[in-house]
Each structure stands twice: as structure tokens, then as C-alpha cells.
């Protein structure tokens, strides 16, 4: 059974049919790409999957569990974490605190414990500190743990967003244009990081990307969206040589 199953998903904004009859199956452990021209509805699909928008119709199942129309926090707790196209970090918090917010639901103590500084506070905080540092090390951010998130260079901000998403211990990670605004070197580095994350966290990843080098380099399967509809779907090689896809998106 696929980890993520989407059936006949659709949503309209006024008269605009943003996503129509969208079907998707992402197997566990797969690195799946979602591509298409600007305005095709890729980010809308992400927003539907994470509960930012309520689907007009269709069913979304994660690990066999129906999560259609659930709230964003419930969907996160069910196991979907995401990054954003326009970076959304907690800018006035330090790098490590950004990750700790991601760990929030996995390491708990009550408000009173926090205010009174009971022993449990110190124990859980130490544990969170260690977990957060481990994640930061994966992304090479451990040296800047105390820096304010807004003071990080662009490429590192993107990485921190991925680290924060991973901190919520998801089953499925959604990356919305992780390579946007990166130079070729940074993109190459990012590809390595994504591969590493997938291997070491045993993660299933669904990503939106325009950088075809990245897409053809790491994605095993692709779905191409155009005007809210699926244009082509399947193995990366096949999809990229599909004449329809070349005509609508890649260019002849």
C-alpha cells in the first residue's frame, strides 16, 4: 500500500478550477517530484495535502488513514511536514530554537513545570537540545546554533526549514522548491543533502521543483501538472520524454 494516496482531489477558488481530478500515489521511501509551469497548481496541491486549504472534493490518505479536511496541526501530527516556497522561519528565534519548536510535540512538559523549573524541565530541555543539535549537524548548521534565523544566509535558511520540518518526525516530507534561488553549487549540495536525509531518516519525500537538473538527478517518479490537471505521471525518464510534457513545460 502506498504511503500517500490521493484520489480525485479538486478545489476551486471562485470560478477558477485550481486543481482538478488529481490522483497521486507515493510509495514509502520514494523520492517523488511534482513539476509543471508556473500557476499549474503545484503549491495548491501542497496546501491541500497539509490542510491549509480544505479540498472541495477527493480523498487524501496517509498510511491508510483518511486525513481529508483535517486541520494543519492534526495533519502534522499524523505525519506530514513541509517547507515553504517563500521561506517561513521563526526569524526572531535562534537557529536551534527553530528546530526545538519543531520538536515541540515530541518532548513535553506542562506550563507549570516550565515556570517553576522543576527537574523535568531540565531533563526534557537537555534532551531537546541534544536532538536539535543532532539535526543541525546533519545540515551543517551546528556552528550557527545560536545565530538568529534571520541572520543566516539564504541557502542555510532553506536547510534550516528542512531541519525544522524533520524535527516533527514526519513520515512524509513535502519540499516546496527547495532549490529556488540557489546557485548551481548550492543546488548540488542540496541534492546531496536530500539524498542523505532520505537514506538516514528513511524518509519519503515529495518535492516541487523547477530545476530540471535536480529533478532528473534525484526523483524516481514524477507527476506533471498543467492548468490544475495531471498531464503526465510515471517514472522520471518516461515522463521527461513524453511529447506532451516537452510541449507544455520543457520546451521543444
Amino acid at each position: 500500500m502506498a504511503l500517500l494516496e490521493v484520489k480525485d482531489l479538486g478545489i476551486s477558488f471562485g470560478g477558477l478550477r485550481a486543481v482538478d481530478d488529481f490522483n497521486l500515489e507515493v510509495e514509502k521511501g520514494c523520492l517523488y517530484g511534482l513539476i509543471g509551469p508556473n500557476g499549474a497548481g503545484k503549491t495548491t496541491v501542497f496546501n491541500l495535502l497539509t490542510g491549509v486549504y480544505k479540498p472541495g472534493e477527493g480523498i487524501i490518505r496517509l498510511d491508510g488513514k483518511d486525513i481529508t479536511g483535517h486541520k494543519t496541526i492534526e495533519i502534522n501530527q499524523a505525519g506530514i511536514a513541509r517547507t515553504f516556497q517563500n521561506i517561513r522561519l521563526f526569524k526572531e528565534l535562534s537557529v536551534i530554537d527553530n528546530v526545538k519548536v519543531g520538536l515541540h510535540n515530541h518532548n513535553g512538559y506542562s506550563t507549570l513545570t516550565g515556570i517553576l523549573r522543576l527537574p523535568k524541565y531540565y531533563r526534557v530541555e537537555r534532551q531537546m537540545e541534544e536532538e536539535a543539535m543532532k539535526l543541525l549537524q546533519v545540515f551543517g548548521l551546528d556552528g550557527e546554533a545560536q545565530t538568529l534565523a534571520s541572520n543566516l544566509p539564504y541557502g542555510k535558511q532553506r536547510k534550516l526549514e528542512i531541519a525544522r520540518a524533520l524535527a516533527t518526525k514526519p513520515k512524509l516530507l513535502l519540499l516546496d522548491e527547495p532549490a529556488a534561488g540557489m546557485n548551481p553549487n548550492e543546488t548540488q549540495e542540496l541534492m546531496d543533502t536530500i539524498r542523505f536525509v532520505r537514506k538516514s531518516f528513511d524518509m519519503t519525500i515529495l518535492l516541487i521543483e523547477h530545476d530540471m537538473k535536480l529533478v532528473s538527478g534525484i526523483c524516481e517518479k514524477l507527476t506533471v501538472l498543467n492548468f490544475g490537471r495531471v498531464l503526465s505521471q510515471g517514472e522520471t525518464g518516461e515522463v521527461l520524454s513524453d511529447p506532451e510534457v516537452i510541449k507544455a513545460y520543457l520546451g521543444e
Binding site: I73, A81, R88, F90, K91, V101, H104, A167
Partner: peptide, 9 residues
């Protein structure tokens, strides 16, 4: 960032 806060639960 309220939207990001929601997205991490």
C-alpha cells in the same frame, strides 16, 4: 510566523 507554526504542529 503563524502559518509555519501551524505546519510544525
Amino acid at each position: 510566523n503563524t502559518i509555519a507554526a501551524e505546519s510544525v504542529g
